[in-house]
């Protein structure tokens, strides 16, 4: 039984793939800082739009983006919904004895804009990278090598365990398992995860033995040379004003 790869990079135009992955990581970080430093609602909206524009321009499909709009979990949704009522400001409307204020709405909208401004950029710059390439880029940027090893191993095993999980789930479905709120479901799901846990630990020790067998002594070699070209310098220079323009506007206005 085969399944879609869980951590497949998003498809993008070939232009992006000519850039050095390190540049993409750095640009993403710079953009995050710039986007989060904005305080005016209009500029925050502009940042979200800009990130969306860049993502679409560089060939991310709107469908892929739509599916990954910042996932507002129940709890965050609650925070955003309550925000208009808990911030002091001019009342817009009243609900019972609660007052919704304009400042509160502005804040909630601002959060939405900033969250999307960051996540769109993360998706286009990092989500389109092969994870292995990302790991190597992080290693070259000075991230501790143990952490990079852990990342690379984890990415590999996520796929293995996900497929195993799907196999076990299929077996449960074949026996007409429908999860509900009852002891039986919790037991079954717990056993499913317990089984995955036992198998994954056994697999980890097999892998460790295989690695020892091949003389692993705590180092992976990064075989790609990851050359930083003139092309990358140009793009980096071009990106500097783009990243800085919004914070500058903020301080001027």
């Amino acid at each position: 039984m085969s399944s879609l790869p869980l951590l497949a990079p998003l498809a993008t135009s070939s232009f992006l793939n000519t850039l050095d992955p390190r540049l993409r990581v750095l640009l993403c970080l710079a953009w995050t800082g710039s986007c989060l430093s904005l305080e005016r609602l209009s500029l925050q909206a502009l940042a979200a739009l800009a990130a969306l524009g860049v993502a679409l321009l560089l060939g991310l499909s709107p469908r892929a983006l739509l599916r990954r709009l910042v996932v507002m979990e129940g709890f965050m949704l609650l925070v955003l919904l309550l925000l208009p009522f808990s911030m002091p400001g001019n009342p817009v409307f009243t609900l019972g004895n609660l007052e919704a204020t304009d400042a509160g709405f502005a804040r909630a909208l601002g959060i939405l804009f900033q969250a999307h401004g960051v996540i769109f950029m993360v998706l286009i710059l990092l989500g389109t990278l092969e994870v292995v390439t990302l790991g190597h880029a992080l290693a070259r940027l000075g991230v501790p090598d143990k952490l990079v090893h852990l990342l690379l191993f984890t990415v590999r095993y996520v796929q293995v365990l996900y497929e195993e999980h799907l196999r076990l789930r299929q077996a449960m479905r074949a026996r007409a398992f429908v999860p509900g709120t009852n002891r039986h479901s919790w037991n079954s799901l717990g056993w499913l995860l317990g089984m995955l846990l036992v198998r994954s630990l056994e697999r980890a020790s097999r892998i460790h033995e295989a690695m020892k067998c091949r003389g692993f002594h705590g180092r992976f070699y990064l075989l790609d040379d990851g050359a930083w070209g003139r092309h990358d310098t140009l793009i980096a220079l071009a990106a500097v004003p783009l990243v800085l323009v919004l914070p500058l506007l903020e301080s001027v206005l």
């Binding site: 095993y157 709120t181 980890a204």
Partner: peptide, 29 residues
Amino acid sequence: LRRLDYDRIPQAAMLSALFFVASLVNVPV
């Protein structure tokens, strides 16, 4: 990271992956 042996990386990664997969499991309450 200082305490993490290279020898334990496969095990730690396996568990990290397991928790990633477990976070995809939906439990009705």
